[in-house]
Design a protein around this nucleic acid. Sequence first.
DNA 1: AGTATGATTGCCT
DNA 2: GGCAATCATACTG
Length: 181
Amino acid sequence: MQPAPVVAHQLIGVVLLINGVGGRIVETEAYDHDDPASHTYPGPTPRNAVMFGPPAHVYVYRSYGIHWCLNLVCREVGHGAGVLIRALEPTKGIAAMQHRRGTTDLRLLCSGPGRLGQALAVDAGLNGAALTGPEVALEGFGDAEPYVVLTGPRIGITKAVDVPWRFGAAGSRFLSRPFAG
DNA sequence: AGTATGATTGCCT
DNA sequence: GGCAATCATACTG
């Protein structure tokens, strides 16, 4: 397995489906163990246990008591690194996503980690699920179409605010926020 | 046991 | 642009 920023970069353009619903990933963020902004920085706890487990599994956490956010665990057992899926371009199960989100505006379905979680019906029950399991599908990892990938500082954090570990597909209109420069 | 704090979003002015 | 909503987790005493 590769370091989190490398995986986060490689995930741009990959199709992610949860129970057949999802689309092409256009925005990610990397979080590593030696990273003050990461949930794993203080060490293992019950909440982040999945991140210290085997890679290619799903880590789900509740954000601000309201939203479910979806991450993919990378690197080896015990390392505690992952990639936050921040936005994707809806391609499959669009009707289901529109129903869950309460809007037909494609731009508002998955443009942001909280919206994406709601659109894909992510909740605590998905925490720890394997990418090879029945719920999750990742299509084209490692051989996705080449994308022009932009980088920039991560959003919404208060520590390590200058680390440029946010990645996004250039020109996509489904980004949660535009990239500077 | 009590409190502080978010890897956010949407509604208000 | 500002701020409330809302709660699991982690930390303090």
